[in-house]
Design a binder for these strands. Structure first.
Lengths: 205, 205
DNA sequence: GTCATCATGTAAGCCGTTACATGATTGC
DNA sequence: GCAATCATGTAACGGCTTACATGATGAC
């Protein structure tokens, strides 16, 4: 989904998509190429993205160089250069991807969806990273869903803390830290909700 | 490793190990049984844990009930009850696991190791949850490694923030929030380091 | 007597990591 | 010319999730 989110803003090739997700947006500590390229291949197979430049587009326009008369050995090397031009497994170079209409629909569906929402912080972070792409009302809903999910977590952590009796001081300290971290997260969400609400109101007036 | 950590403190069966990891220690939002039991099986295969009660131990002591004389149909049902007693795939009931010496060595090695340390917060959280099991010096080292790893993250996030120009306000806000969260984490680690140091000093004097 | 919870497992499928392999481009 | 970085992939392996299947125990 992070790939679709990046592509929803701009057509890019895999390597650069990875760079933005990891270095700019800080959504993952790292993404291996062994997961990036298969992921793009899957998205392409699902028709959520398509290749707009590179691979075939990039190779075909090049004309086969006219080399004049050649000895036998030279001719053989030209042969392998032809293979390099047309064999897909041997042609490298940027492949620029674009999100398709279907991919865009899927992406916005995901932004509104509860898929993976409760369990995984990442699921929210990915959505929030692309919050500028959605409508203010959807954004507000996203923040409110996040808030309620954090409230639930707080209750759960407090439960742990209630059963704390048998936990040692380190485990207890960790629980308390995660409690305060969650509260801090809720405060952040609250300021975002407030600024989102005032933005909507301004617009309505 | 979380399983070994729990078992390092007490012999327990799978279901209860899961409960402690998830509900008491809050290390994972959830663990599926499809990952819990295979994980225990792997640990057993590696001889890091062993079964101390249950399965065979639990079944064998029960004597086959003496039923007196029976008609043909009854005899058949007794037959299937025999199968229930001795067929491993049909016998259920608690299997209590204990950590082995080899498992304990492996666990303490893990506590001191950098394995997965930088990338994954979970790797630290798991280690810290069992911090009471290790020596004060090891504990201090653990905290200091964590601190330096968080400092690195802070530098990385600041880098993101430096390249922020092209990021929209939401992505920027997320970056800033994660920055302050990391700083908050560092402060927490600092208080832990300080209290650990004073504890070591007290002991030395 | 039945429902919830406790308790243990298997099988298929998905997907991420690591290691490997290749080639293009840029700067020194 | 050579190194670093840009750029794209494949193959083996491991392990998690989901769905399925079974059985025990205790409360009402």
């Amino acid at each position: 989904m992070a790939i679709l989110g990046v592509l929803a803003g701009q057509d890019l090739h895999g390597y650069e998509i990875k760079r933005r997700i990891v270095d700019d947006l800080n959504l993952f500590a790292s993404i291996s190429f062994g997961s990036m390229y298969p992921a793009l291949a899957r998205l392409e197979k699902l028709a959520f993205v398509e290749v707009t430049q590179g691979r075939f587009n990039r190779v075909q326009p090049k004309s086969i160089p006219f080399t004049g008369s050649l000895g036998g050995e030279k001719a053989a090397s030209i042969d392998s250069s032809l293979i390099n031009r047309f064999d897909t497994t041997r042609t490298r170079g940027k492949k620029v991807y674009a999100i398709t209409e279907s991919g865009r629909i899927h992406f916005f569906y995901f932004m509104n969806d509860d898929f993976n929402f409760g369990e995984d912080d990442l699921a929210f972070r990915v959505r929030f990273a692309f919050a500028s792409l959605i409508e203010p009302e959807m954004r507000l809903k996203l923040l409110e869903r996040r808030r309620s999910c954090l409230e639930n977590r707080l209750l759960k952590v407090r439960d742990s803390n209630g059963r704390e009796s048998r936990l040692d001081s380190y485990a207890k300290s960790a629980i308390e830290h995660s409690q305060s971290e969650t509260q801090n997260d809720i405060s952040w969400i609250d300021t975002l909700i407030q600024s989102e609400r005032s933005r909507i109101n301004e617009h309505t007036i």
